[in-house]
Design a protein around this nucleic acid. Structure first.
Lengths: 240, 240
DNA sequence: CGAGAAAGGAGAGCGGTGCTCTCGTTTCGT
DNA sequence: ACGAAACGAGAGCACCGCTCTCCTTTCTCG
């Protein structure tokens, strides 16, 4: 349920109680998030559920926004864990298979936790700004995995795309900086198409989770997603 | 600003005042939507801005949710108008150009109206269900235009994709039903890849509007979007 | 034209929210 | 053992959506 909470061993009973309360906060917070959404997440209601008066939770959490931050971090970590778990059972040289595994993991986690997915990838909560020093780490786990597959596939010579630059030069400069920051060797076209696959993957998942497809028109969204995954894997130059 | 309000000619002063108040509601509502987001949209604050006490707005709008519905319809129509305006200046036989025009129109409208875009394509507002009889019409204008391009391009023989069915058969059945409902002749692969392009387009736009790309990593998001558009046009079999 | 009906606005009020402050009580560190 | 820190409870503030009542304005129709 809760992930990477940074369990410090409980020296004193009070410290142990505090950690338990923090865990309860995130746990009940997720329940309310699923019920009422990020906007309707009520600190008072969460307090009631953990059997404490509303003002008491401010001993643990600075504000409602910080509770949101805890839920964001917890969600990113759970998604990252799901992706890593799916990757564990795929042959490292099966690059297309690794991409497909990532895509399936993202989709199935999103469908099982739509409220948390909406918190992470839906409309930004108005007035709330996630503290990047705490969220970018867990928030970049998925794209990190995707990038690693492209890099591995490229160095293995498995990507059927040219190694030329991309136009215009402005874009090529942006991509070059990303390549340098991440220590990559993949060419422009792979980075660019990789970013497209990334955005498209979450576009497909968002459409499904947020109900943008007409609900009646699609009886088997899973099949459509699998087809889309195959096409997306092709677009990064990995024949599915 | 406001679109397709169903202007009935004002017979009586009272009726005219009512229409003016309705327009003000949507207008001020959009301002507050941009400021506070869909969740923070306060009926009381809107009432204050139009110079009326909070209970008075219930003479015009059944609930806060109905005000949201008005904003949803207004937003869909504005987006649809933007797309149609962009299409007006494109040669009808330039199928790739029509797709690119639609994509650019969606992106630039979304960037200019991020709050309304978030209302339409972001996380669903918890507890709010758009009345489909009023929103599906304006809500399907973009996909309708996209579908029309694919159909036109297919009948003109401009799409370089096979006309075979898609696997598995469950998916093929879903696609066949869509083809029949919409009166289309395009084959499975075109419908499927078309839906992918649709979802991917909004995935790219959402990533940009919602700030999922690292803000510092991309200095020229426009260039990346143009590249993505070219690739997406290719994936539906229309050489860019 | 004038009376009854309909519509609109103002205000009080209900229960809910996030958040702050104060006041005892409990627990910890020394 | 004692001062300090942590904690829970409660009252209170300003805001929210929404309802109800009361009164004025406007329309409709005989």
């Amino acid at each position: 349920m809760c992930h990477h909470q940074g369990m410090t061993d409980a020296t004193t009973p009070r410290a142990r109680a505090r950690e338990q309360t923090m865990r309860d906060l995130v746990r009940i917070g997720r329940v309310h998030l699923a019920t009422s959404g990020a906007a309707g997440l009520s600190l008072r209601a969460v307090a009631r559920d953990i059997g404490v008066v509303s003002s008491a939770v401010y001993r643990y959490v600075e504000s409602r926004d910080e509770l949101l931050t805890l839920l964001v971090i917890d969600g990113y970590d759970e998604l990252g864990d799901a992706v890593d778990a799916a990757l564990a059972s795929v042959d490292a040289t099966d690059f297309a298979g690794r991409l497909v595994a990532i895509g399936r993991a993202v989709r199935s986690w999103a469908l099982s936790e739509p409220a948390t997915y909406a918190l992470l990838f839906g409309s930004p909560v108005p007035g709330y700004h996630a503290p990047s020093d705490r969220t970018t780490g867990p928030g970049t786990r998925v794209i990190t995995r995707l990038v690693q597959v492209w890099e591995d596939a490229w160095t293995a010579g498995a990507i059927g795309l040219g190694d030329g630059d991309v136009s215009p030069r402005r874009l090529s400069r942006d991509l070059a900086r990303m390549r340098q920051d991440q220590g990559l060797t993949v060419p422009d076209e792979v980075i660019s198409r990789g970013l497209l696959m990334w955005a498209a993957l979450f576009g497909c998942v968002s459409f499904e989770v947020f109900g943008q497809y007409g609900l009646d028109t699609l009886t088997q969204p899973h099949d459509l997603f699998e087809h889309h995954l195959r096409v997306l894997v092709e677009t990064v130059g990995l024949g599915g």
